[in-house]
Design a protein around this nucleic acid. Structure first.
Lengths: 236, 236
DNA sequence: TATAATATTGAATTTAAATTCAATTTCAAG
DNA sequence: CTTGAAATTGAATTTAAATTCAATATTATA
């Protein structure tokens, strides 16, 4: 977890609380913001919503935050940082088992989408709003992919991939997840949710498609629980 | 091109011009909106920006549009509809040549991203803002994929795919393009643009990855111009 | 318990932008 | 050329929300 810095991605300085009591109130506002963001999203959020949810007077807001954007950035940065911590778990998976590693990675991401669709939506809203936050998110994303990108030259020495090409390939493949998960869990596109799939099923599908694109092979059938028939999806 | 309907995706009724002169002014406002949307995006656009760009008084706006959202929806729906027309071109490609068809399809999409990054960004902003527009965009997207989804049972009879599964597979694969193109052309992520690739190169990469995921094969090498080395990206 | 630092309140004010509309202009039809 | 329907103007008004701040409450510590 990163230490609290005076400046966020935003230009404006963080206004610190000057007592334990103040710190508590500041936190209360952040928690309230989390609730409001999940419910209505960034663009519809109002200061009165946050202070109302927190049960404090409107004026108190300015004691701790210069504006809504700073508060939102702080809340979302915390959220991203905490996912970061959680994602260390996937490091447990045996080194050589690529399918399991990808699956574990995707499952963590998919769970975040499924459990906090509103906040996930806000990550995209804020990335669209603020280049600094966009960069932060992207760096986090790329860092997550780093392990895979780094393995590429070793995995496929024949291909003679440049580092940039490796990044582009992984980036392209990862894009699959972003769109599918967003439209399934955040936007809940009826055409997709019609199948009423569990998070685990979506994740398996995603991982299978990723594995296929990368390795030009279907993953070992014995590892699959929902998508075994895809092994027959091959050019005749 | 769809006929002008009284109601848009939005709930509010369209306010028609009542003379040829009025029609011209109405169009001028729409063109101005297109310029402003490309420049600053939906959330930062103001009525004064539009009337200023069009060179008319602020009050005139309300003669033709109830609010900014209606204007924006009208403009973006026109844009989507016109891409629709353009995309018929790809039907020219020989039936059996899957790689060429996908390439043509992706090239059209990639060009839209490259030529109008701001408007493309607005499509996403508006889809996030308005469920009706989100549906419209998604239907258009799915319609574009329809040809591919429909072929799936025929292409892979062995796999015994359900219609929903076919859609999920194609949807997942198409997601690749969305993320990559957005981060390359709209957000211009430095890690991606570092390679300074032409639209054609990005499109080829995208299509190759799509083809691999779908057919579990690399496309015919003789068709590739920039990404031949990817044929060696195979699990040893 | 007195004091001072900090937190908290909420009504008053400011601000940016949307919205209205009476007055004026344009222009096509007769 | 006259007339009336429609277009156009821009200053005045309204609105929603942010922002300020004097008054009051709380708390730690001397």
């Amino acid at each position: 977890m990163a230490a609290k810095s005076a400046k966020a991605v935003n230009g404006r300085a963080r206004i610190p609380a000057r007592s334990a009591r103040g710190e508590k109130a500041r936190d209360k506002l952040k928690q309230a913001a989390m609730v409001v963001l999940e419910r209505v999203g960034y663009h519809k959020m109002r200061i009165a919503d946050v202070t109302g949810e927190a049960g404090v007077a409107a004026g108190l807001f300015y004691h701790y935050f210069p504006d809504l954007k700073s508060l939102t950035l702080e809340v979302l940065e915390d959220f991203v940082a905490s996912s970061h911590d959680i994602e260390d778990i996937e490091k447990d998976v045996p080194r050589g088992d690529w399918y399991e590693r990808m699956l574990a990675h995707n499952l963590l991401i998919a769970r975040a989408y499924a459990e906090r669709p509103g906040i996930t939506r806000c990550l995209l809203q804020m990335a669209d709003e603020d280049p600094g936050f966009s960069r932060l998110l992207r760096e986090h994303f790329i860092e997550q992919l780093g392990w895979l990108v780094k393995q590429m030259p070793r995995l496929f020495p024949e291909a003679g991939l440049t580092e940039h090409q490796a990044l582009m390939v992984i980036y392209t493949l990862s894009g699959m997840g972003e769109t599918l998960l967003r439209d399934y869990f955040v936007n809940r596109q009826p055409e997709l949710t019609a199948g009423n799939l569990a998070v685990e099923e979506i994740t398996e599908l995603l991982t299978v498609m990723l594995y296929r694109g990368l390795f030009l092979q279907n993953p070992p059938v014995e590892k699959l629980r929902y998508t075994r028939n895809l092994q027959y999806m091959v050019r005749a």
